[in-house]
Every structure is written in structure tokens, then in C-alpha cells.
Simulated scan of single mutants.
Amino acid sequence: MRVAQLRRFGALIIAAMVLAIPAWSGAAAEDGWPRTFVNVDGSTTEIPKKPERILSTSVAITGPLLAIDAPVIASASAGNGTFFAQWAEVATQHGVENVWPAGTVDLEAVYAVRPDLIVVAASGAGSATDQIDAFRQVAPTILVSDGNETWQELATQLGKASGLEEQASAAIADFDAYVADAREKITVPEGTANIISFHGPGRPNQIARAGGAHASLLTALGFTMEDPDPAWHTQANNRGDFVWAPYENLVDLTSQTTFLLQVDDSKAAAFLDDPVLANVPSVRTGQVYGLGVNSFRIDPFSGREIVDGIVAKFGK
């Protein structure tokens, strides 16, 4: 066969191959699917299409998913078998099924809800990393961190996995605007502030670090946050959000204002009336407040509750 004929023959083959490419392949590339998600452990997960049925295996992740309008069809709950109170009503409105409490996994429920994306937390009471291989037999499964990250950082990652980047950005912008508006409405007390999960003697008392989600929220409201000494930490792994401190170290805190996690103002008396803490500056000034009953985990729902509580306390 002559060279010219070979060239014409090759051109016909290439043309036939182009015509044989399915019409959907160009559309899939155009709208970004499939896409590869980089998990927190460095592995990757291919997500073939935009998810329509998401299973959250950690109750801590479900709040940010709901905030970006992700199609959550099922979620694990807290250890007591209930959803977090700050978004439980929203979950009910969306028909989110409660599949199991933290600390357990029901693989039959995984198959029953027919997810097309499963989200797993890398740590915490709701982590189900030991079942991740089983999950991946059912649907694409991603692994995210919900420890030191803010809900905004988590929402950004979840937006990438679900194709809801715009919704994630909008949710973050709306929340930031809400906080900025609240800052203009309050008069911040003089001096520094700290945040404590108070349990008394015999147990660690978590103190929020300046770079963590809780302290960052109060910083955005205009407070100057005290950073606890990392050397007080009693756990094996250091964290960027909290120091697990012995009860005795609470007397070394210097802030004039203290906020207590998971309680309202009615429960502040336990801290104010503790005789060992009588000389703590915030006790001497009487400036000890509950941060809110849903304040332990900050998501966009509990975050707004905290902001509203701050405005109610310190409004101009």
C-alpha cells in the first residue's frame, strides 16, 4: 500500500474512532465528573457522578453537610441515639434516617439506604474507620477529618466531594456576615477570655486553644482569647483545638472572662462557687457564662446559637 493510501486509511480510522466516542463522555468531562477526592490519609477516592444519596457515618459531619444543602439521606447519631439538637429539626425536614448511634455500625443499614457516597470521620467517637473497606464495597467512600478543622474547612472539603462548591462558599459567606453583624452589636468585656469544658476534679477539663474553632469564633466577635499552656495536655496526641488539662491547672488561667461549654448561664454556678477556683480572675470579676447547651461542637447551626447568646449577653 502506498504512503498516500496509508495516510488516507489512517485518517479514516481516526475519524471513525472519534465518531465512536459516546456523546456523554464530553458532557461528563465538562461538568466535572468523575472526580478524584483526596482523603485525609492521603489516599484517593474516585466519585463517578454527582452524589444524590449521601450517608454520613459521623454525626459531627452531618451538620456541615446539611448546611451546604447536600443530599443526606442517612446519618449516624450521637452516642445517646439522637441527632445533635441544633440541627435535628432540619434533619427531620429533610427526611434523614437515623441509622445507628456513635460507637456502632450497622452494615445492613448501609445497604438498605443505598448510598452513592459514604462519608467517614477519621477520628472521634463517631469514627468508623475500621469499617471503611466494607463501606467501599457498597459505594464510593471518603475519609475526612473533623477534629481540629473548623466547620468552614470541613464544608469546603465536603463541597468538593459532592459538587456543591458554590453552596459551601455561600454558607460560609452567610455565616461570616452573620458574625460580622453581631460584632457590631456588642461591647466586648475588657481583658482576655477563655473557654472551658468544666468537669471539676478527677477528670480532664478541656480548655479551648486560640487557634481552634471555638476560640476562632469568639475572636471573630472581637474577643482576645487566652491560649492555655500545651504542657498541661494529658492526652497522648496534641490537638490544635483543645488542651485536656488537669483540674489543678485551671487556677493558672488569667482571663477576666470565662465561657463554659455545653451549659447555659444557669450552670455557671458550679464554676463560680468552686472554692479552689475562688481566685481565678473570671471568678473574682463574676464574669463566667455558659456558651450554650449545644456549644461543644461548632457547626453553622450551633455557631449561630452561640453568636445569638453572645449578643444577648453583651449587646450595646
Rank of each mutant, 00 (worst) to 15 (best):
A180V: 06
A231I: 08
Y247H: 07
E166V: 13
G200F: 06
F259Q: 05
L272G: 06
L272W: 08
R239F: 10
H233F: 06
N205P: 07
F242A: 10
G240S: 13
V179L: 04
L272P: 08
T219G: 15
D264E: 12
H233M: 01
I186C: 03
V276A: 10
D227T: 01
E166D: 13
Q167C: 01
A213Q: 11
P201L: 05
N237V: 14
S197A: 13
A236C: 07
D174S: 10
I196L: 09
T254A: 07
Q262V: 08
T258R: 12
S197I: 00
R239C: 05
E248F: 00
P246L: 10
M225S: 11
S266C: 02
V188F: 00
L221G: 07
V243R: 07
S216L: 13
A231K: 14
V280D: 07
A245D: 08
G211I: 01
F259D: 06
A171W: 04
T219C: 05
L217F: 10
G191I: 11
T219N: 14
D252R: 15
Q206L: 11
H214P: 04
L272R: 07
L253M: 15
A193S: 14
L261S: 12
V280H: 08
A182G: 06
A193P: 07
T254P: 00
V188A: 01
T187N: 14
M225K: 06
Q235A: 11
A193F: 05
T257G: 10
V188I: 11
E166Y: 04
L260F: 11
H214F: 03
P228K: 13
Q262W: 10
W232K: 01
A270D: 15
T254Y: 00
T254M: 01
E184M: 04
I196E: 02
L221R: 08
T258Y: 07
A180K: 13
F175Q: 09
M225G: 09
L277I: 12
E226L: 02
S255R: 03
D273P: 03
D252L: 13
N237S: 14
E226K: 00
F242R: 03
T254H: 09
A180Y: 04
A173I: 00
R203K: 14
Q262R: 15
G240Q: 14
P230I: 08
R203Y: 10
D274V: 02
D176W: 00
D265F: 08
I196D: 04
H214T: 08
A171H: 01
D229S: 09
A171I: 03
Q256R: 12
G222L: 08
L217E: 08
S255P: 07
G200E: 06
D265G: 13
D241W: 12
I172M: 10
A245C: 09
